[in-house]
């Protein structure tokens, strides 16, 4: 698919901020499943700082803004050609050993219930096990927005029985690590759900490292593996570590956010 992405984030402060520092992981990663033909990050003020590709293969770009700042907009627009690799992350340059992703974090620690969920399935091999774990998570957490929040842990989401894509990803990561499979959190965009309903939002899923195949994506929230409807930005231990934007604002003002994401399919002629 040819996907056109526009992603605009507006920050407003009720008292002007003195300064802002942001670390952006907002550029699609490079692999066989996607090719970036155009990508631009524009920040309405300030200056671009450090920019580099890290060991996980993510492009990081820092921005700093000196105040006083009342509002600022981070605008992303780009064009990505995607193709279906059945969830397998191929041709992605990274140097981090997969074993690093066995480490639990606060958001992905497995409690007794997650351990039970993880131990409750059997697989013929690692790939089969990963599929079954993903299906188990889909079954255990029903999609329902508004029940969980940004800092809800995998264990809490499972206890609630409801959640959004972040919770599915966290629970699946916890289960996979519990079974000795390295797993990580991936942030990105999704064009439409499998029945064709437009998604038009930031999305997240899990990647599990399965032996010779390497990293394979699993979207437990949508009961599938990522295909050409997905655009992959970057990864981390959990949602916090993989966050597309991490920032600090200096000042006493309260911040309000306005986020707009659009993922459109472009016809071939365009």
């Amino acid at each position: 698919m040819r996907l056109k992405i526009t992603h605009e984030t507006g920050y407003r402060y009720d008292h002007p901020a003195q300064a802002l520092v942001q670390s952006l992981r907002l550029t699609p990663s490079v692999h066989e499943g996607q090719r970036v033909t155009d990508w631009q990050i524009a920040v309405s003020r300030g200056q671009r700082g450090a920019a580099f590709r890290d060991g996980a293969g993510d492009w990081i770009e820092a921005w700093t803004v000196r105040g006083p700042v009342e509002e600022i907009t981070v605008s992303i627009s780009g064009l990505v050609e995607t193709r279906d690799t059945a969830g397998v992350l191929r041709g992605h340059r990274e140097t981090i050993n997969p074993l690093v992703y066995l480490r639990p974090t606060a958001l992905t620690a497995a409690d007794a219930a997650l351990c039970d969920l993880a131990q409750g399935v059997a697989g013929e091999d690692a790939l089969d096990l990963a599929h079954r774990l993903s299906a188990a998570v889909t079954g255990a957490i029903a999609y329902l927005p508004g029940v969980t929040e940004a800092l809800t842990s995998a264990a809490e989401a499972l206890a609630l029985g409801h959640g959004v894509c972040q919770d599915h990803a966290h629970a699946l990561i916890a289960c996979a690590r519990q079974r000795g499979l390295p797993a990580r959190y991936v942030s990105g965009y999704l064009h439409s759900t499998i029945d064709g309903t437009p998604h038009d939002a930031a999305h997240a899923w899990a990647e599990i490292h399965v032996g010779p195949l390497g990293w394979v994506g699993f979207d437990a929230a949508n009961a599938c593996c990522p295909d050409d409807r997905y655009v992959r930005l970057g990864s981390g231990y959990d949602a916090d570590d993989a966050a597309p934007v991490r920032g600090t604002t200096f000042g006493s003002g309260r911040e309000s956010l306005d986020v707009r994401v659009q993922v459109e399919e472009m016809s071939q002629e365009q």
Binding site: D54, R103, Y237
Partner: peptide
């Protein structure tokens, strides 16, 4: 052993390759 290094809490993923 790989485990001692890569699963070590002091191993920082953020600086791999630097």
């Amino acid at each position: 052993p790989a485990r001692l290094v890569y699963q070590n809490a002091a191993y920082e993923k953020a600086v791999v390759g630097f």
